[in-house]
Design a protein around this nucleic acid. Sequence first.
RNA 1: GCCCCCAUCGUCUAGUGGCCUAGGACUUCGGGUUUUCAUCCCGGCAACAGGGGUUCGAGUCCCCUUGGGGGUGCCA
Length: 526
Amino acid sequence: MSTQTRVRFAPSPTGQVHIGNIRAAIFNYLFARAQKGAFLLRVEDTDLERSTPEAIDGLMEVMEWLNLMPDEEPLFQSTQRESHLAAAERLIAAGDAYRHARTPEERPAVFFRIPCDAARYGGALRDTGAVELSLFAGESLRIDATGISYVGVSRKGKPDPGMSCLAGMADGVVYGAGDTVLFSLKASLSAVLAGDTVFESTEATRVVFTRREIGFEDLVKGALAKPLDSMKDLVIVRGDGSPVFHLANVCDDMTQEITHIIRGDDHVENTYRHIPLFLALGGRVPAYAHLPMIVNAQGKPYSKRDGDAFVGDFRAKGYLPEALFNYLTLLGWSPGDDREKLNRDELIAAFRLDRVQRSAAQMDIQKCANLNGKYLQDLPEGVLFADVRDVLSRTEWGSALDEEQVATVTRLMRPRMQTYLDILDWRYLVDPGFERDEKALKRGLGKAWQREAMVKIAEALEGGATLESARAETCAALELDDGRLNQPLRVCLTGQAGGPELVDLLALMDASTFASRIRETLEQAG
RNA sequence: GCCCCCAUCGUCUAGUGGCCUAGGACUUCGGGUUUUCAUCCCGGCAACAGGGGUUCGAGUCCCCUUGGGGGUGCCA
């Protein structure tokens, strides 16, 4: 018996990769590494309608970008069809599944029967006591090989239709008026299962049975359970002969010998169905860990309309893969101390599933950008310059810069950079065609003396003076403190209220450039 | 409707019955450094959803309410 931990990331390639999805991949990866186990990829591409080759390419690209490469060749679910169908046949042969059409027009599908035999659950089953279910008068109760359908009574006294698998009420007794026993499922169970007995009545008033629940110990959420009478037998092969997700998923997990299933919260309900399936197929039930969802800035689940939700967007917006990776680990997990910026090895060393949060986490793009900025500060200059050049090369004004210029401005701007998208604001450093900010203009040139001072400086520069002397002259003439000139100068030079240090800025250009910028800015300021 | 789950500052979180007058980070606000801007440093605002229990003692355990999410498909 192998004790190696084996986990998998099992996305369906039906579009762009979502951050919620990739976070699941990251947690799987981290857990595998922490356990010295294997991280596998399974592409659940059985929905041919929606699965596209482009989506598969996109998935691979994203995983490569984030350095989340699987340890073995990916398993494409569509290649496993025969094994899924064979599993369904085995279940039918063993009496754990049956063919059934719910309407005469429908082609029969294969249903998995939730096992009635408690011994089949490997200890996952628990009695929680006797239950008396009141039925709505005059409505039909039907018990057949597919389960029990009934109409209960809601809290407000209204009809409340329900359906239970046979296992949910396996020892049930149906009573009619005056406590007469109409039907005992317990006594007739094997006949009902065999399809020989069908009970249907509108006289039934209540059903009494022992409630049993199926449970498991979730590595994140703790003990989880669900009553069997709230579950129905499930379709595992469609009328058209194609395997359904539940079957395919469980079969492939057996094929890949998965020991731990780490996936989104939205799968907890499936777990109650998958456990009996594993057991019926003779597989070992894996351990489960369900991750909380990631929600948008409104605290709602991400929908198609939300931006900022695809991994590709982050890449396009100038995020570093290691920063996004790090940030995503912080969504629903923490190392237990005050560390937030952790590299891959630190994350692996600190990762534990029992430290995963139980509730949903909201994406905070500002914090993500802030963290990205910290990674940017740590980047070796060579890498940083290359990335900057790459972004610059896509702009009209930036593509002409030579290596030295790129190095100079990048060194200047690096401390205030959060993402590579910020580079797009650097235009004023090198290109006279930059845009000027209204508010900055007002702040730096709004007053008459500011404009006057700038005109004087421009004139001096045009007359061949150095900046130093032009500045000193102007200050003396207008009786101004040296520092008062900084803001107007900055605005004339950059059109912005903020930016790098003024002296560094001035070093980027000669006196005539400087003078013409003053003239142009003054003109624009009116 | 029914079933399941969740709940600490605006956000991500620390907290596993006494170390909590609840800590860190992002955001925000103030101050310092800076002739300007930013980085940086220092500081402030800001939370245990509500109500009942259990206990000598509850953010931590139990119950209820409220709010949120998931499921309830021959989707995955």
